[in-house]
Protein backbone atom coordinates (compact mmCIF):
# COMPACT_ATOMS: atom_id res chain seq x y z
CA UNK A 1 0.00 0.00 0.00
CA UNK A 2 1.33 3.41 -0.95
CA UNK A 3 1.24 5.99 1.83
CA UNK A 4 3.05 8.79 0.01
CA UNK A 5 3.34 9.35 -3.71
CA UNK A 6 5.12 12.33 -5.19
CA UNK A 7 5.32 12.94 -8.93
CA UNK A 8 7.20 15.84 -10.51
CA UNK A 9 7.12 18.06 -7.41
CA UNK A 10 8.38 21.61 -8.04
CA UNK A 11 8.70 24.56 -5.69
CA UNK A 12 10.43 27.84 -6.46
CA UNK A 13 11.23 30.68 -4.08
CA UNK A 14 11.49 33.85 -6.13
CA UNK A 15 13.66 32.76 -9.04
CA UNK A 16 15.44 29.99 -7.18
CA UNK A 17 14.06 26.50 -7.65
CA UNK A 18 14.24 24.72 -4.28
CA UNK A 19 12.67 21.48 -5.47
CA UNK A 20 12.78 20.71 -9.17
CA UNK A 21 10.88 17.65 -10.34
CA UNK A 22 11.14 15.30 -7.39
CA UNK A 23 9.33 11.95 -7.58
CA UNK A 24 9.19 9.06 -5.12
CA UNK A 25 6.83 6.69 -3.35
CA UNK A 26 6.75 5.45 0.22
CA UNK A 27 4.96 2.25 1.17
CA UNK A 28 3.09 1.39 4.36
CA UNK A 29 5.38 0.76 7.34
CA UNK A 30 8.47 1.87 5.44
CA UNK A 31 11.21 4.16 6.74
CA UNK A 32 12.18 6.49 3.91
CA UNK A 33 15.17 8.79 4.30
CA UNK A 34 15.82 11.99 2.39
CA UNK A 35 19.54 12.57 2.44
CA UNK A 36 21.19 15.71 1.19
CA UNK A 37 23.28 18.76 1.97
CA UNK A 38 21.82 21.98 3.38
CA UNK A 39 19.67 23.77 0.84
CA UNK A 40 19.18 20.66 -1.29
CA UNK A 41 15.40 20.80 -0.92
CA UNK A 42 14.81 18.21 1.83
CA UNK A 43 12.88 20.43 4.19
CA UNK A 44 10.87 22.06 1.41
CA UNK A 45 9.86 18.62 0.12
CA UNK A 46 8.84 17.49 3.61
CA UNK A 47 6.94 20.72 4.27
CA UNK A 48 4.93 20.21 1.09
CA UNK A 49 4.07 16.66 2.19
CA UNK A 50 3.04 17.94 5.64
CA UNK A 51 0.67 20.46 4.05
CA UNK A 52 2.71 23.29 5.58
CA UNK A 53 3.93 24.69 2.27
CA UNK A 54 2.16 24.94 -1.07
CA UNK A 55 3.75 23.43 -4.13
CA UNK A 56 4.03 25.12 -7.51
CA UNK A 57 3.36 21.98 -9.52
CA UNK A 58 3.39 18.20 -9.41
CA UNK A 59 1.15 15.50 -8.01
CA UNK A 60 1.26 14.76 -4.28
CA UNK A 61 -0.87 12.23 -2.40
CA UNK A 62 -0.27 11.59 1.29
CA UNK A 63 -2.46 9.07 3.16
CA UNK A 64 -4.85 9.17 0.23
CA UNK A 65 -5.40 12.92 0.21
CA UNK A 66 -3.79 16.02 -1.25
CA UNK A 67 -2.05 17.74 1.69
CA UNK A 68 -2.69 21.14 0.08
CA UNK A 69 -6.47 20.55 0.22
CA UNK A 70 -7.60 22.79 3.06
CA UNK A 71 -11.06 21.23 3.33
CA UNK A 72 -9.57 18.12 4.90
CA UNK A 73 -6.48 19.62 6.52
CA UNK A 74 -7.70 19.09 10.08
CA UNK A 75 -8.52 15.41 9.52
CA UNK A 76 -5.19 15.06 7.69
CA UNK A 77 -3.22 16.53 10.61
CA UNK A 78 -4.88 14.08 12.97
CA UNK A 79 -3.14 11.30 11.07
CA UNK A 80 0.39 12.71 10.87
CA UNK A 81 3.05 13.41 13.48
CA UNK A 82 5.90 15.87 13.05
CA UNK A 83 9.21 16.23 14.87
CA UNK A 84 10.82 19.54 13.96
CA UNK A 85 14.44 20.60 14.17
CA UNK A 86 13.84 23.23 16.82
CA UNK A 87 12.59 22.49 20.30
CA UNK A 88 9.26 24.22 20.68
CA UNK A 89 7.53 23.74 24.02
CA UNK A 90 6.46 26.20 26.70
CA UNK A 91 9.24 25.96 29.30
CA UNK A 92 7.08 26.21 32.43
CA UNK A 93 4.83 23.24 31.76
CA UNK A 94 5.88 19.81 33.00
CA UNK A 95 6.70 17.02 30.57
CA UNK A 96 3.45 15.25 31.43
CA UNK A 97 1.36 18.43 31.02
CA UNK A 98 2.80 19.16 27.58
CA UNK A 99 2.19 15.60 26.39
CA UNK A 100 -1.33 15.53 27.87
CA UNK A 101 -2.23 18.82 26.23
CA UNK A 102 -1.05 17.75 22.78
CA UNK A 103 -2.69 14.32 23.19
CA UNK A 104 -5.98 16.19 23.56
CA UNK A 105 -5.71 17.53 20.00
CA UNK A 106 -6.00 14.04 18.51
CA UNK A 107 -8.99 11.68 18.31
CA UNK A 108 -7.07 8.48 19.18
CA UNK A 109 -3.93 9.50 21.06
CA UNK A 110 -1.40 7.25 22.74
CA UNK A 111 -1.49 7.04 26.52
CA UNK A 112 0.83 9.65 28.00
CA UNK A 113 2.55 6.99 30.13
CA UNK A 114 3.18 4.86 27.06
CA UNK A 115 4.83 7.81 25.31
CA UNK A 116 6.92 8.59 28.40
CA UNK A 117 8.15 5.00 28.34
CA UNK A 118 8.84 5.00 24.60
CA UNK A 119 11.06 8.09 24.76
CA UNK A 120 12.56 7.18 28.15
CA UNK A 121 11.31 10.17 30.14
CA UNK A 122 9.36 8.32 32.87
CA UNK A 123 11.56 9.69 35.63
CA UNK A 124 11.26 13.22 34.25
CA UNK A 125 7.48 13.21 33.81
CA UNK A 126 6.73 15.81 36.48
CA UNK A 127 9.74 18.04 35.88
CA UNK A 128 9.41 21.43 34.25
CA UNK A 129 10.48 21.36 30.62
CA UNK A 130 13.00 24.15 31.23
CA UNK A 131 14.86 21.86 33.68
CA UNK A 132 15.47 19.14 31.08
CA UNK A 133 18.83 18.69 29.41
CA UNK A 134 19.10 19.34 25.68
CA UNK A 135 18.91 15.65 24.85
CA UNK A 136 15.90 15.15 27.10
CA UNK A 137 14.13 18.08 25.45
CA UNK A 138 14.70 16.53 22.04
CA UNK A 139 13.27 13.26 23.34
CA UNK A 140 10.23 15.19 24.51
CA UNK A 141 10.02 16.61 20.98
CA UNK A 142 9.95 13.07 19.66
CA UNK A 143 7.30 12.22 22.25
CA UNK A 144 5.14 15.15 21.11
CA UNK A 145 5.48 13.89 17.54
CA UNK A 146 4.13 10.44 18.36
CA UNK A 147 1.58 11.23 21.08
CA UNK A 148 -1.20 11.52 18.48
CA UNK A 149 -0.55 7.93 17.37
CA UNK A 150 0.22 9.00 13.78
CA UNK A 151 0.02 6.76 10.74
CA UNK A 152 2.80 8.78 9.17
CA UNK A 153 5.64 10.37 11.13
CA UNK A 154 7.93 13.10 9.77
CA UNK A 155 11.33 13.35 11.43
CA UNK A 156 13.35 16.40 10.42
CA UNK A 157 16.96 15.70 11.42
CA UNK A 158 15.78 14.05 14.62
CA UNK A 159 19.16 13.33 16.23
CA UNK A 160 21.16 16.45 15.33
CA UNK A 161 23.07 17.36 18.48
CA UNK A 162 22.51 14.00 20.22
CA UNK A 163 25.34 12.16 21.92
CA UNK A 164 25.95 8.64 20.53
CA UNK A 165 23.98 6.94 23.30
CA UNK A 166 20.98 9.23 22.86
CA UNK A 167 21.06 8.61 19.09
CA UNK A 168 20.84 4.85 19.63
CA UNK A 169 17.93 5.49 21.98
CA UNK A 170 16.11 7.59 19.39
CA UNK A 171 16.73 4.94 16.73
CA UNK A 172 15.23 2.30 19.02
CA UNK A 173 12.09 4.43 19.39
CA UNK A 174 11.78 4.77 15.61
CA UNK A 175 12.27 1.01 15.16
CA UNK A 176 9.65 0.27 17.80
CA UNK A 177 7.20 2.56 16.00
CA UNK A 178 7.77 1.08 12.57
CA UNK A 179 7.36 -2.37 14.10
CA UNK A 180 3.84 -1.17 14.93
CA UNK A 181 3.14 -0.18 11.31
CA UNK A 182 3.96 3.54 11.41
CA UNK A 183 5.40 4.91 8.18
CA UNK A 184 8.35 7.26 8.69
CA UNK A 185 9.83 9.96 6.48
CA UNK A 186 13.20 11.06 7.77
CA UNK A 187 15.56 13.80 6.71
CA UNK A 188 19.13 13.53 7.90
CA UNK A 189 22.75 14.54 7.35
CA UNK A 190 24.02 11.38 8.99
CA UNK A 191 24.93 8.44 6.78
CA UNK A 192 24.93 5.99 9.67
CA UNK A 193 21.46 7.14 10.65
CA UNK A 194 20.10 6.54 7.16
CA UNK A 195 21.89 3.19 7.06
CA UNK A 196 20.61 2.15 10.50
CA UNK A 197 16.99 3.17 10.06
CA UNK A 198 15.97 3.54 6.45
CA UNK A 199 14.52 0.86 4.23
CA UNK A 200 15.09 3.18 1.31
CA UNK A 201 17.11 6.34 0.81
CA UNK A 202 16.75 9.12 -1.71
CA UNK A 203 19.76 11.38 -2.14
CA UNK A 204 18.63 14.88 -3.02
CA UNK A 205 20.94 17.53 -4.41
CA UNK A 206 20.06 20.96 -5.80
CA UNK A 207 16.39 20.08 -5.86
CA UNK A 208 16.82 16.81 -7.76
CA UNK A 209 16.84 13.22 -6.58
CA UNK A 210 20.19 11.89 -7.81
CA UNK A 211 19.87 8.33 -6.51
CA UNK A 212 17.24 6.26 -4.80
CA UNK A 213 17.22 2.77 -3.32
CA UNK A 214 18.00 0.61 -0.28
CA UNK A 215 21.07 1.93 1.57
CA UNK A 216 23.01 -1.28 0.88
CA UNK A 217 22.77 -0.94 -2.89
CA UNK A 218 22.56 2.84 -3.28
CA UNK A 219 24.62 4.18 -6.14
CA UNK A 220 25.84 0.66 -7.01
CA UNK A 221 27.84 0.29 -3.80
CA UNK A 222 27.03 -3.46 -3.64
CA UNK A 223 28.93 -3.89 -6.93
CA UNK A 224 31.96 -2.13 -8.38
CA UNK A 225 35.29 -1.35 -6.84
CA UNK A 226 36.43 -2.48 -3.43
CA UNK A 227 39.48 -1.55 -1.43
CA UNK A 228 41.60 -4.50 -0.15
CA UNK A 229 44.21 -3.76 2.48
CA UNK A 230 46.73 -5.85 4.35
CA UNK A 231 50.12 -5.69 6.01
CA UNK A 232 53.20 -7.81 5.17
CA UNK A 233 56.71 -7.65 6.71
CA UNK A 234 58.71 -4.72 5.32
CA UNK A 235 60.69 -5.59 2.21
CA UNK A 236 58.52 -8.56 1.20
CA UNK A 237 58.33 -9.05 -2.59
CA UNK A 238 54.72 -9.16 -3.76
CA UNK A 239 53.51 -11.76 -6.33
CA UNK A 240 51.75 -10.99 -9.60
CA UNK A 241 48.29 -9.59 -8.74
CA UNK A 242 45.72 -8.80 -11.47
CA UNK A 243 44.98 -5.28 -10.17
CA UNK A 244 46.46 -1.89 -9.32
CA UNK A 245 48.64 -2.36 -6.27
CA UNK A 246 50.22 0.27 -4.11
CA UNK A 247 52.65 -0.84 -1.43
CA UNK A 248 54.51 1.29 1.08
CA UNK A 249 58.11 0.53 2.19
CA UNK A 250 56.75 -0.45 5.58
CA UNK A 251 54.72 -3.24 3.99
CA UNK A 252 51.25 -1.65 3.96
CA UNK A 253 49.48 -2.85 0.78
CA UNK A 254 46.36 -1.36 -0.78
CA UNK A 255 44.61 -2.78 -3.83
CA UNK A 256 41.66 -1.22 -5.68
CA UNK A 257 39.76 -3.72 -7.79
CA UNK A 258 36.33 -4.72 -9.04
CA UNK A 259 37.52 -8.39 -9.26
CA UNK A 260 37.88 -8.94 -5.55
CA UNK A 261 37.41 -12.75 -5.65
CA UNK A 262 40.33 -13.28 -8.07
CA UNK A 263 42.55 -10.85 -6.18
CA UNK A 264 41.76 -12.36 -2.82
CA UNK A 265 42.41 -15.87 -4.18
CA UNK A 266 45.82 -14.73 -5.49
CA UNK A 267 46.74 -13.00 -2.23
CA UNK A 268 45.61 -15.74 0.13
CA UNK A 269 47.13 -18.64 -1.87
CA UNK A 270 50.43 -16.66 -2.04
CA UNK A 271 50.32 -16.18 1.72
CA UNK A 272 49.71 -19.89 2.32
CA UNK A 273 52.18 -21.33 -0.26
CA UNK A 274 55.02 -18.86 0.36
CA UNK A 275 54.33 -18.75 4.12
CA UNK A 276 54.19 -14.95 4.15
CA UNK A 277 52.77 -13.39 7.30
CA UNK A 278 49.69 -11.42 6.14
CA UNK A 279 47.99 -9.39 8.86
CA UNK A 280 45.06 -6.99 9.07
CA UNK A 281 43.36 -8.11 5.87
CA UNK A 282 40.28 -5.97 5.14
CA UNK A 283 37.90 -5.70 2.21
CA UNK A 284 35.94 -2.44 2.06
CA UNK A 285 33.05 -1.52 -0.16
CA UNK A 286 32.30 2.13 -0.82
CA UNK A 287 30.67 3.49 2.31
CA UNK A 288 27.30 5.19 2.07
CA UNK A 289 29.24 8.35 2.73
CA UNK A 290 31.52 7.74 -0.29
CA UNK A 291 28.46 7.23 -2.46
CA UNK A 292 26.73 10.26 -1.02
CA UNK A 293 29.73 12.52 -1.54
CA UNK A 294 30.12 11.28 -5.09
CA UNK A 295 26.43 11.78 -5.86
CA UNK A 296 26.21 15.25 -4.37
CA UNK A 297 29.36 16.34 -6.19
CA UNK A 298 31.60 16.71 -3.17
CA UNK A 299 33.81 13.68 -3.73
CA UNK A 300 36.96 15.78 -3.84
CA UNK A 301 36.33 17.54 -0.56
CA UNK A 302 37.09 14.51 1.57
CA UNK A 303 35.03 12.80 4.20
CA UNK A 304 34.23 15.79 6.38
CA UNK A 305 32.32 18.96 5.77
CA UNK A 306 29.66 17.49 3.54
CA UNK A 307 26.99 19.25 5.54
CA UNK A 308 28.12 22.74 4.51
Amino acid sequence: MTVVSVEGLCKTYGNTPAVDGVSFEVGHGEVFALLGPNGAGKTTTVEVLEGFRRRDSGQVRVLGVDPADRSCSRAFRERIGVVLQELAVEPFLTVRQALARNAGYYPRPREVDEVLGLVGLEDRADRRIKSLSGGQQRRLDLGLGIVGNPELLFLDEPTTGFDPLARRGAWDVVRALTGGGTTVILTTHYMDEAEALADRVAVISSGHIVAQGPPATLGGRDAGEVRIRFQVPAGTRLPEIPAAVSASPSGQVEIMTDREIEVLAAVTSWGVSDVVEITGLTVERLTLEDVYLRLTGHAATGTTGYGG
Binding site: F52, R74, L84, Q85, A88, Y105, Y106, L144
Partner: peptide
Protein backbone atom coordinates in the same frame (compact mmCIF):
# COMPACT_ATOMS: atom_id res chain seq x y z
CA UNK B 1 10.49 32.39 16.64
CA UNK B 2 10.83 29.32 18.88
CA UNK B 3 8.84 27.23 16.41
CA UNK B 4 5.79 26.84 18.65
CA UNK B 5 3.46 28.31 16.04
CA UNK B 6 4.83 25.99 13.37
CA UNK B 7 4.29 23.00 15.60
CA UNK B 8 0.72 24.16 16.33
CA UNK B 9 0.09 24.61 12.62
CA UNK B 10 1.14 21.00 12.05
CA UNK B 11 -1.13 19.74 14.84
CA UNK B 12 -4.88 19.30 14.36
CA UNK B 13 -5.70 22.22 16.70
CA UNK B 14 -7.58 24.69 14.45
Amino acid sequence: ETGLLKRLRLSPLP
